[in-house]
Design a binder for these strands. Sequence first.
DNA 1: GGATTTTACTTGACTAGTCAATCATTGTCG
DNA 2: CGACAATGATTGACTAGTCAAGTAAAATCC
Lengths: 168, 168
Amino acid sequence: MSPRKSKTAASPVPRVADEIQQTRPFRSSAQEALLALILTSDRVLARTATELARVADITPQQYNVLRILRGAGPEGLPTLAIADRMIERTPGITRLLDRLERKGWIERERLADDRRQVLCRATKTALKLLAKLDPLMDELDDLPGRELNGAETKQLIALLDRVRAAFA
Amino acid sequence: MSPRKSKTAASPVPRVADEIQQTRPFRSSAQEALLALILTSDRVLARTATELARVADITPQQYNVLRILRGAGPEGLPTLAIADRMIERTPGITRLLDRLERKGWIERERLADDRRQVLCRATKTALKLLAKLDPLMDELDDLPGRELNGAETKQLIALLDRVRAAFA
DNA sequence: GGATTTTACTTGACTAGTCAATCATTGTCG
DNA sequence: CGACAATGATTGACTAGTCAAGTAAAATCC
């Protein structure tokens, strides 16, 4: 992983070295791959955030939580069970849920049979919002499929899996 | 991009679906690829942050800035020129530099001929710290090369470049 | 059955990212 | 030259991530 960043680029598929004000060459292809990985993930997340912000006052994290709660159905999920299904770790989840509650997108209730747990449920407002956002997010999810064919996509997944394993 | 996350896994190279408490299958391979991308980038960054924190009181962003300043040499760089070489955008850079200055790793000076610009330079302390961190970071940079061969690495870079282009 | 441990959160103190607004200094143009 | 626009940097108000510490309610163990 090396520093430095993008600005503009000319070619149809800008390569990593062009995205960066790169003075020296990369020490190795492996290093270039890591930078490509991070730049790409960053770009995908930024695009997602932009699209979500354009149509609703919601961040990707908040959207994630609502999707998880929709998947959980009307019984809802306790706080830490939500955290387990997200990329990041625990303590942030409480404050994230606070914001969602303030916006009227979730309801929380302390469980009667285990008063340590706090059950969270998506509200009807949230479900309506999600339904509105679904087509947009599906479209973004399918963008790689417009650029890569089936075999290439599977190849990419396999390569990423191996890189991830190397960093475990 | 779909929600949900990891916890533990058994197989040698855990696949994306296993990293997640996945109930339903993915809508498409493209969607699975995006999730793999984000999980992998996240893992790489987390590992980097952990290693840096283990040997010095420094974050990846702070390390990035110091590398950029080392590359710029003794003349230093103005604030926004640093921001241009990083992944994120402008306003955060001022506060990041504030922290680096507090730690004695950079010096700032308003330029005489253009008093709008603030020139930043890495201190000797920072350069010594970087020299100490270099082997560690080089090792991390080369991890993908232990898992993938040359052709696979180039393939990965090419695929990532195309995905990134799709999200431009 | 009362102390101890574990579980499920919660809070506080940081670092860092975003956007909008602001400020001083320069540049430009009529 | 003087109004006005552009540039470089900074600040304020948020969202969010991390770690360490704390609280309250189970669960477990003599």
